[in-house]
Simulated assay, not measured.
Amino acid sequence: MAQISFRVDDEIKKKAERTFDDIGISMSAAINIYLKTVVRENRIPFELSADPFYSDENMSRLRESIRQVRDGEKKLTEHEIIEV
């Protein structure tokens, strides 16, 4: 069995570990599943996209901003770049 070492952002690692814990698998098992799928399908097994708009982090920030506007904690203002 081979050993692979690589660097990952601490926060990404923590979030991934939480997800894998929720699923009930280890980080090692998840990476092995990924690599086996790459080999079997001869490709990266998901679509790569440069559009981060719908990321969990961005959607969470947008929901929080909407809540703050609804609760009167923030006020919407016009911006010179955005046409109304």
Rank of each mutant, 00 (worst) to 15 (best):
81 I>V: 12
57 E>C: 04
54 Y>G: 05
10 D>N: 07
49 S>C: 12
57 E>G: 03
76 L>I: 08
74 K>C: 04
38 V>F: 07
24 G>Y: 05
4 I>Y: 10
63 R>V: 03
70 R>K: 15
56 D>E: 15
48 L>T: 15
24 G>H: 02
35 L>A: 09
46 F>P: 06
36 K>R: 14
43 R>W: 09
65 S>Q: 10
40 R>A: 12
20 F>R: 00
22 D>C: 09
52 P>K: 13
66 I>T: 14
65 S>L: 13
44 I>E: 12
8 V>P: 00
39 V>N: 13
27 M>P: 00
39 V>G: 13
10 D>S: 09
17 E>A: 04
83 E>D: 08
39 V>A: 11
22 D>E: 15
45 P>G: 02
46 F>Q: 06
40 R>W: 02
53 F>W: 14
2 A>S: 10
38 V>S: 02
59 M>A: 00
84 V>E: 09
19 T>E: 10
34 Y>H: 12
69 V>P: 03
77 T>C: 07
43 R>K: 02
19 T>S: 09
61 R>W: 07
51 D>W: 08
37 T>W: 07
72 G>V: 03
38 V>H: 07
54 Y>R: 15
17 E>H: 02
46 F>H: 15
18 R>F: 08
18 R>Q: 11
60 S>A: 12
20 F>K: 03
8 V>E: 04
6 F>Q: 09
72 G>W: 08
81 I>Q: 05
30 A>W: 01
54 Y>K: 14
57 E>W: 07
21 D>L: 05
21 D>G: 03
42 N>E: 11
61 R>V: 10
60 S>E: 15
65 S>P: 01
39 V>T: 15
11 E>P: 03
41 E>W: 03
41 E>S: 00
62 L>W: 07
58 N>A: 06
29 A>W: 08
73 E>H: 08
39 V>D: 14
20 F>W: 01
76 L>P: 02
60 S>T: 03
68 Q>L: 13
8 V>H: 01
51 D>Q: 06
74 K>I: 02
65 S>H: 13
81 I>R: 06
8 V>Q: 07
7 R>C: 11
83 E>A: 06
10 D>Q: 04
1 M>E: 10
45 P>D: 11
3 Q>A: 12
59 M>E: 14
74 K>D: 05
36 K>V: 06
83 E>C: 03
5 S>M: 10
78 E>Q: 05
74 K>E: 10
75 K>A: 06
8 V>D: 01
74 K>R: 06
15 K>E: 11
50 A>V: 11
34 Y>C: 14
75 K>P: 04
81 I>C: 03
69 V>T: 11
5 S>I: 03
71 D>I: 10
15 K>V: 00
79 H>P: 06
83 E>I: 05
75 K>S: 00
67 R>F: 10
